[in-house]
Design a binder for these strands. Structure first.
Length: 774
DNA sequence: CAGTGAGCGAGCTTCCGCTTGACTT
């Protein structure tokens, strides 16, 4: 039995560290937090000073009991969770969950997984920092109170099963507000003049492209300018050369890795993290959830060695980067290859591509600057005071550019940097052509997953471990949808001066094309409006930053954590109560117009099951009729005509086997209903025009499929069936499903067998825990 | 994966932050 038990957060880390320490040490992992607030009720005792009710998380019971056993036999238990707020709390929870004896428990920390760092940590143990734990408790309790009081309010006032929280609600706000900016954006156009000159040089003819810095607001002004240039003489007035340099970007953090993988590889945020996890687990890269730019001395040394070997000594420049991100906790290193001499690694194409990106970024960050020479050429026009400008850039020394250049989110990469031909001051230029083309102002870009993460990081909301899950949550709640939009064609004017003649042309370009961008849904916009109206403080972009400041004060011992919570909770809770009493149902109801046949009002709003249209007033004697919106429609844009179409359902389209067939649109899209059974329409079927014959086809297809999936049926009781599911055979009784015990042949089950199996609680459908009411 | 299918009636839903491997309906 080992004398020492070391507990870290991640199993891959445990494996590495075990190699560094001798055989007297066993290294195990807690798999992150082992305790959390109870999920029943609030999990916090409001009346008695906000005492948290912690429980061992259900998925951690096994880990905890194993660690408990090992800790009993160990002489010393070393708690080596990360050195940040959450890590400190993990150690504290471990003390409680494992019932550790204080005398044999030691807390150690390290920021990098290197042998020296770990041996050094072992030499310098300390106790648990209770103040830091308190800061974490404040963070945890605040998030619980906000989430578990706001969400139920939404269920009552907006729609069931919605959610709100300190992080997700602000993320949705960003997307809703960006969409509003875009909607209110006024597109204007102006004319940009570009001139092409022919240069005779020793090497033959080359081109020089120059631009007019000024843009013309109207076509008339642009034409007037071109007319002036017909008989003009063009002379080089000035040639300015300036040295410039470019520096490499710092190594990757979680957020910048997600951004670059999105731009360069087209990965979603979730995909990047999944692939990075695989690389981490196979020991190829360091930890992938980090906000630190730091590289260990070992890594710096390896990088230097690698760069010298591959490119030579003059490409080396060792740098240490420091983070500018507020609230960064820097418990880990930056994301880097474990061994810099592996230029490639990974099992599949995704892993290889991501690894290569990390390798290049890390190596480049330790390379010398690129040396540039920037040239600006000014060209006089004899007939006007305006001057043309040509810009050029020559790379004198490539430095880090040999390996890697960070891309940008900028969608219209304007500055084209070309190499200029040899030119002399006073030289007269021969105009080939001059073009004035119409350019339009561009609305602010919509967020994609990665650029939203970037913005969240800037605001200090969310952590490296939560960026990907948060983005998935707001999509799962249907606050936000990720999709492509096809652009529209737009005409623009082009005026050309060539051979001393001016001609005009109209050209066409694609505009508004969007790929994998985040759009707010009706529900997202409505919930955002509700929260902004009643809880503007939580929705404030600075809310997290201001509570973070208080958490820091708690960690410094200047503030008691439950006092901070009390100050927040008092006004917050009375707002909840007040809103509960006074706010009406928040449905976003909008009057579209009147039904021309009946004269009844047509409304659009959010109902229990999402966006819908309503015919007739709620207060009128005749109950109003309802119909759900199609998935492709929105409250914002639906027209009266489209709304009226929706009331054509359910459509009776004939009879089949003596029962009528109807078509309608439900929660899960358009369907055919026959004999109380439902059959989904295909995407290619139009619910407004689908005919009886096609409906029968769909019914027969479904029947065939059901037959194939049925293993056993019983004449005596048709509500009991043995069916083939995606996880194998199961028993269905009415709407409930039951597991079949192992070793039972489903083909041979009798009705009695089925009923018996259904009575055994072991086989009952799992529905989670029932909530206990006090 | 495939299946689900209402307009109110039960019972349920929910947060953020650590971490991976569950093993379903």
């Amino acid at each position: 039995m080992a004398k020492n038990l070391v507990i870290v957060e991640s199993p891959a880390k445990a494996k590495t560290i075990e190699k560094f320490l001798g055989k007297d040490f066993t290294v195990k992992s807690s798999f992150g937090h082992v305790m959390d607030l109870s999920k029943k009720n609030l999990g916090v005792d409001i009346e008695n000073g906000f005492i948290p009710n912690y429980e061992i998380s259900s998925d951690k019971k096994k880990v905890v009991s194993e660690l408990k056993k090992l800790s009993k036999d160990a002489e010393t238990v070393w708690l080596a969770s990360d050195e940040d707020r959450e890590g400190e709390a993990i150690s504290w929870h471990l003390v409680n969950a494992l019932k550790l004896d204080e005398s044999k428990t030691k807390r150690i920390v390290f920021h990098e997984i290197t042998k020296t760092a770990i041996l050094n940590a072992i030499e310098n143990p300390r106790g648990i920092n209770k103040k830091l734990v308190d800061a974490q408790q404040a963070r945890r309790v605040l998030d619980r109170l906000v989430g578990f009081e706001l969400s139920p309010l939404l269920w009552k006032k907006v729609k069931p099963a919605l959610s709100a929280g300190r992080v997700q609600s602000v993320a949705v706000r960003l997307i809703v507000e960006r969409e509003e900016e875009i909607k209110n954006f006024k597109v204007t156009s102006s004319y940009k003049v570009t001139a092409k000159f022919e240069i005779d040089s020793k090497k033959g003819k080359t081109k020089l492209v120059a631009e007019l810095p000024k843009k013309f607001k109207t076509k008339e002004e642009a034409i007037k300018f071109l007319e002036q240039c017909i008989a003009a003489e063009f002379t080089i007035a000035k040639i300015e050369k300036k040295p410039g340099k470019k520096s490499p970007a710092p190594p990757f953090t979680t957020s910048t890795l997600q951004q670059e993988a999105s731009r360069k590889l087209g990965f979603s945020v979730g995909n990047t993290m999944r692939v990075a996890q695989q690389l981490y687990e196979s020991g190829k890269i360091t930890y992938m959830r980090t906000d630190s730019l730091n590289l260990s001395n070992l890594a710096l040394g390896m990088a230097k060695e690698q760069i010298t070997e591959l490119y030579g000594e003059k490409y080396v420049k060792t740098r240490k980067f420091t983070t500018k991100i507020k609230g960064a906790q820097e418990a880990h290193e930056a994301i880097r290859p474990t061994y810099m001499n592996n230029k490639t690694a990974g099992k599949d194409a995704s892993q290889k591509k991501l690894y290569e990106l990390i390798w290049k970024r890390t190596i480049a960050s330790q390379m010398s600057e690129a040396q540039l020479e920037k040239t600006v050429v000014t060209i006089d026009i004899s007939t006007t005071k305006e001057k043309l400008v040509a810009k050029g850039e020559v790379i004198k020394f490539d430095g880090f550019l040999k390996v890697y250049l960070e891309s940008t989110d900028d969608e219209n990469g304007e500055d084209q940097k070309n190499v200029l031909p040899p030119l002399n001051k006073g030289e007269k230029l021969q105009l080939d052509e001059m073009i004035a083309d119409e350019r339009f102002t561009k609305f602010p870009p919509r967020y994609n997953e990665a650029s939203l993460v970037k913005k969240m990081e800037e605001l200090g909301i969310g952590r490296p471990s939560t960026y990907a899950p948060t983005i998935s949550t707001i999509q799962k709640r249907e606050y936000v949808i990720k999709e492509d939009r096809f652009g529209k064609n737009r005409n623009y004017d082009v005026i050309i001066l060539k051979n001393e003649k001016i001609t005009e042309k109209v050209k066409s370009e694609k505009t508004g094309f969007e790929k994998a961008k985040l759009f707010p849904t009706d529900i997202g916009a409505l919930v955002n409006k509700f929260l902004l109206q009643y809880f503007d403080n939580i929705m404030d972009y600075n809310f997290t930053a201001s509570v973070e400041k208080e958490f820091d004060e708690i960690a410094d011992g200047q503030k008691k954590w439950n006092e901070m919570i009390k100050e927040f909770y008092g006004p917050f809770h009375s707002k909840i109560e007040n809103t509960l009493e006074t706010a009406k149902k928040f449905s976003g109801e909008k009057l579209l117009g009147k039904d021309p046949k009946t004269g009844l009002n047509i409304f659009v709003k959010i109902g229990r099951f999402g966006p819908m249209v309503q015919m007739g007033d709620a207060e009128s004697e005749d109950k109003p009729r309802f119909a759900g919106l199609k998935k492709t429609q929105s409250i914002e844009t639906v027209t009266l005509e489209e709304a009226l179409e929706l009331f054509k359902f359910p459509r009776n389209i004939g009879e089949f086997e003596g029962k009528e067939i109807t078509v309608a649109i439900g929660r899960f899209g358009p369907y055919v209903k026959h004999n109380n059974l439902f059959f989904s329409l295909q995407k290619t079927d139009d619910p407004l025009s689908v005919i009886r014959e096609r409906a029968i086809e769909i019914i027969e297809e479904k029947r065939q499929k059901d037959k194939e999936n049925t293993i056993r049926e019983f004449d005596k009781d048709p509500t009991v069936k043995v069916l083939k599911g995606r996880f194998g055979a199961y028993i269905k009784i009415k709407t409930k499903n039951f597991k079949i015990p192992k070793g039972t042949d489903p083909e041979k089950l009798s009705l009695e067998d089925c009923l018996k199996i259904s009575e055994d609680p072991k086989n009952a459908p799992k529905k989670g825990f029932k909530r206990k009411k006090k």
